[in-house]
Simulated scan of single mutants.
Amino acid sequence: MWKHVVANVFTLLIVAFVVLGGVVAMGQRAFVAQGPLTEAICLRVDQGANLRTVAASLDEQEAVSSPMIFRIGAQYDGRDGRLRFGSYLVPAGASMDEILDIVTRGGASTCGTEVVLRIGVTQVSYLVRELDPATNRFEEAVTLPLETEEFPAEYQTVANLPDTRFRITVAEGATSWQIWNALNTAEFLEGTIPEVPAEGVLSPDSYEVRRGADRAALIADMEERQAGILATAWENRVEGLPFETPEEALILASIVEKETGVPEERRVVASVFLNRLAVPMRLQTDPTVIYGITLGQRVLGRGLRRSELNADTPYNTYRIDGLPPTPIANPGRASIEAVLNPDQTDFIYFVADGTGGHAFAVTLAEHNDNVARWRRLEAQPDN
Rank of each mutant, 00 (worst) to 15 (best):
D205C: 01
L202D: 12
T232C: 06
A217T: 14
I229F: 10
F243A: 09
L218A: 08
I193A: 03
R210L: 13
A249H: 08
E199P: 11
T157G: 09
A249P: 12
A153Y: 10
W180E: 01
L241T: 00
I168S: 07
A171G: 13
A233N: 03
G200P: 02
L252D: 10
T175R: 11
D221K: 11
I168L: 10
L250N: 04
W180C: 04
S203E: 13
V238N: 10
T192H: 12
W234F: 08
A231N: 12
L230Y: 00
A231L: 05
F166W: 11
P204M: 04
W177N: 15
P242I: 00
S254D: 04
D221N: 12
D221Q: 15
T157C: 06
Y207C: 09
V170F: 06
F166H: 06
S206D: 12
N184R: 07
L252Q: 07
A182H: 04
G173I: 02
Y155F: 15
N236T: 11
E247M: 06
E248A: 06
V238R: 13
A174K: 08
A253H: 03
E149D: 08
E199T: 03
G173L: 03
L183A: 08
T232I: 05
G240D: 07
F151M: 03
S176P: 08
Y155S: 11
P194M: 00
F243R: 05
M222R: 02
W234S: 08
A220Y: 03
R167S: 13
A213T: 04
R210C: 07
Y155H: 10
W234A: 01
E147Q: 14
Q178L: 10
N181H: 15
T169Q: 11
I255W: 01
G212V: 03
E248Q: 15
A217K: 14
L218Q: 10
E190P: 04
E248R: 06
A159F: 09
D221M: 09
R210T: 14
A182C: 05
I168W: 06
G173W: 01
